[in-house]
Design a protein around this nucleic acid. Structure first.
Lengths: 386, 386
DNA sequence: TGATCTTTGTGTATCGTTACACACATGCCG
DNA sequence: CGGCATGTGTGTAACGATACACAAAGATCA
């Protein structure tokens, strides 16, 4: 059979010998061509061609030089997320653009959620890391810190020694929360996973000490109390992004005079429209159907819109909906959302990790803005406010 | 200022010293833990922790071991294409899935279209390559072949020594072409770039020797001849995918008794709906407006559908349209298209490059199928056939 | 014309690890 | 109790390249 037979690479010594020059001359021919006369260079190239020498061995080179020419990317999710999740993809597009500009390769470290993820990180031959949102307790973060390489974390967690880039999720969530919760009586949040267990649930916000659950009008005290018993405490979420957005939504509802324990919280296990459809169905079913749903992502919001349509709810008449990220599908769907450029953020992370930004720019809270669209336009509500 | 100071990595010798064992014992502790007693192992780990030793230096390890634990991916396009082009993204999702399964990292080689792309390839520290469609004359292909590493090319070009995975584009194009061209009088093809120059044009198919351009009814002979003078010769396209699809569309039109020189060919410079909109406008303007457009990608087809709608053309009444790939947007749009699983193909490429498939599976023409939808449903044509 | 600079080629030491072969102790068998 | 397998630790010699310092030969200039 015609196996590729992994033919042995020619080495520099052999090329040097064939070209009648020293090894260093060959080395310079590849690494610093201007250091070699055009004449010799040609002779070396010719010999290399003849021997099928493919250029300096990358491993040997990086051992000696102390750098690899590659930027590592670590996801808090399974590796395929890099290409399956639209947000991650746009972020990585920004990273890739900067890498290409600097001639750097981009290495995606194979994260699968297993214990060996840590080894994968320490084995990665890279010059720096960019981390896409992971949980506070993810051991991968420690492994990255241990390498001593420059590293940037996007979205969290924050860590001494690692740079950090994100929007102010809490402030943004409050802004969009006030928009979507305005005039609502039964608000809900459609949330990303709280922690690495990624358990999908539907419950209420946890009652905060000193407040009386169900105090606001129209909420069944028992149901509320029951929900609160196992309710969602924002601070317990180990994904920083999730935590901050929950806090922001809680702030928004509080500004409207509401209790967190009145807010229904549906937590998805992955960021997918399909799962959102199912969760939205729960939120929109029964006598206590929600009339305002703040989703943490546009995909989730779009799934919600589909379910609302299927169940015959008018948006924003019967229920208001908001998303997050202002993806391409948001505008056509008339979805109110928080716009942030993940591509720009990816680019910024890459620049920091490659040491192309001054140290003052190491950490950054980047821009976002609220995009108001039809899905929260209260004036179009069918039912008048009470 | 608090520069990260690139603190020097501790080395294995230091750990060995601190733990009171030999260097090899430390090496085994990381590389083959079962070779070391639990006791010693703990001692070594402890010493490593104390010294902040992050594990074996990846460069040194790969130099010595002769493998890197990384699969290289090379795109015929700019690196960002990996995350910007939906087809490429799905393909890479398949590649990534297999990599993750094997604990292999995925390195995207930074292609920018410049002359240094070749260097980027030879500098890449990888164990094998997967190549996403590139042109026959792309020097990157030779560079990959020169490395002697296992390599798989998806979509072309074919090369001795490199594996090859693709659908039979010509046959598929013929199938969808017959569907979209059925009953048409002024067919058109909306094509991917022909070669690495990526020049956008609108012209006709080249007249083939021995045939009389404009012989078929209803075509202005002069116009046709003029078009043919600088017409598109499928065989001149250096992107294999483009070439084979052009040939297939030509076959389809020939089966309907038509001449290639009657077929209008619009070539886009990139695979984008926006550019397709503009090109489609050209195809649908004037007295010779096309009545059948076979696009090489769903994005192009969707752009075409939008333009058709804007210009008041009924689909399929006034013009039929077909796409390629059966992307998520194709079904809702009622687009007739060629379905192929790029994700599966990516997975297959990765398996081959990682040496996980038997040599008989090295080259593969994979499955495709024609998906008929409303955009070519001739029975709904408003104008009757002549 | 001698001093100095630039250009170009050359040894040597070293980057940090792992394959390999070997040494020694222990356990197990007949 | 000899013989043999098994488990565990240790030196040595690469793996293939580049940083560095030095040398020789023109080029430049007062």
């Amino acid at each position: 059979m015609s196996e590729t037979a992994a033919r042995r690479r020619a080495t520099m010594v052999e090329v040097a010998h064939a070209a009648g020059v020293s090894v260093m001359t060959v080395s310079y021919t590849y690494g610093r061509p201007e250091r070699v006369s055009a004449d010799t260079r040609a002779r070396v190239r010719e010999a290399a061609e003849r021997l099928g020498y493919p250029g300096p061995h990358p491993g040997a080179r990086s051992l000696r030089r102390g750098r690899t020419g590659t930027l590592g990317v670590v996801l808090g999710e399974h590796l395929t997320y890099a290409f399956d999740d639209p947000q991650a993809t746009r972020f990585l597009s920004g990273v890739a653009g900067v890498c290409a500009d600097h001639g750097m390769a981009l290495t995606l470290v194979p994260i699968t959620g297993g214990p060996s993820d840590v080894d994968r990180v320490t084995e990665a031959a890279v010059d720096g890391f960019v981390v896409w949102t992971t949980a506070d307790d993810d051991p991968v973060i420690d492994a990255i810190a241990a390498t001593g390489l420059p590293a940037v974390v996007h979205g969290g967690p924050r860590r001494d020694g690692l740079s950090f880039v994100a929007v102010d999720d809490r402030a943004a969530a409050e802004a969009v929360g006030r928009e979507v919760f305005a005039g609502a009586r039964r608000p809900a949040v459609l949330s990303f996973p709280l922690d690495r267990d990624r358990i999908s649930t539907v419950t209420f916000g946890a009652a905060t000490a000193g407040t009386v659950p169900g105090a606001a009008s129209g909420i069944d005290p028992d149901a509320t109390t029951a929900g609160a018993a196992s309710g969602i405490d924002p601070d317990a979420a180990t994904f920083r992004v999730t935590r901050r957005r929950l806090l922001g939504f809680r702030d928004a509802w509080a500004k409207a005079g509401g209790e967190w324990s009145q807010v229904r919280v549906a937590v998805c296990s992955i960021n997918s429209a399909r799962e959102a459809e199912a969760l939205a169905a729960e939120l929109l079913t029964g006598p206590d159907a929600c009339d305002a749903i703040a989703a943490m992502g546009d995909e989730l919001a779009l799934g919600t819109l589909r379910t609302a349509a299927r169940l015959g709810f008018a948006v924003p008449g019967d229920v208001t909906v908001s998303g997050w990220d202002d993806t391409d599908a948001a505008a056509p769907a008339g979805l109110t959302t928080v716009a942030q450029s993940l591509r720009d953020q990816g680019a910024r992370c890459a620049r920091i990790a490659l040491g192309r930004l001054t140290s003052t720019d190491r950490d950054a809270e980047v821009a976002w803005n609220l995009v108001r669209r039809a899905s929260t336009r209260r004036s179009q509500r069918r039912r008048a406010q009470p």
